[in-house]
Amino acid sequence: MARTGVWKKKGSAFEKVLAVEKKSKGKSPRFYAPEDAKKPLAKKANSNKTKLRSSITPGTVLILLAGHFKGKRVIFLKQLESGLLLVTGPYGVNGVPMRRVNQVYVIATETKIDISSVNVSKYDDSYFKGAKKEKKSGDSGVFKEQAAKKELSADYLANQKAMDAALTPIIKKTADLEAYLKAHFSLKDGDRPHLMKF
């Protein structure tokens, strides 16, 4: 005899377990909806905040590897809500203003300065979003007057100035650090970056 279904041991013999009848819950519907109601999918993905590399802590000197400022050495200030890093040269030292960078485009060095005295709480992602651009009109740009050079807001300039004023005395405490931040990073002949310590 073929054993199909669910069998349970009872003493020495096996006994077939009969399916338990399901109790019906009232009447089944007389009509089905003509169109399927779309159920929203369960939101399974949860956005995790970007994990900051353990080698990057506030005050760490970073080497930028991409973008307009590649090769520059900058100071890491804090990680923003979006996961991007807030860095600055400072501007007065090597021309890098406060800006956001992704941590995959930086090398973290072992050099750190103590920036616990610097207040960076007022900077968040919205600070860098800027005003919305005006929509371009149908006219081709040829006959239009050359757009005026973008003026930076006085607030922005004052913030950068305050940040420079806070950071520069800390940097000057360490000998050669200012010159180090001013210098570009580049690989020289014979450098083997995978074996180098930063």
């Binding site: 000197v61 180090y180 074996l195």
Partner: peptide, 11 residues
């Protein structure tokens, strides 16, 4: 020399 870091090499 091999153990020195980026700032060390600069100095």
């Amino acid at each position: 020399k091999a153990a020195s870091n980026d700032f060390g090499r600069f100095k």
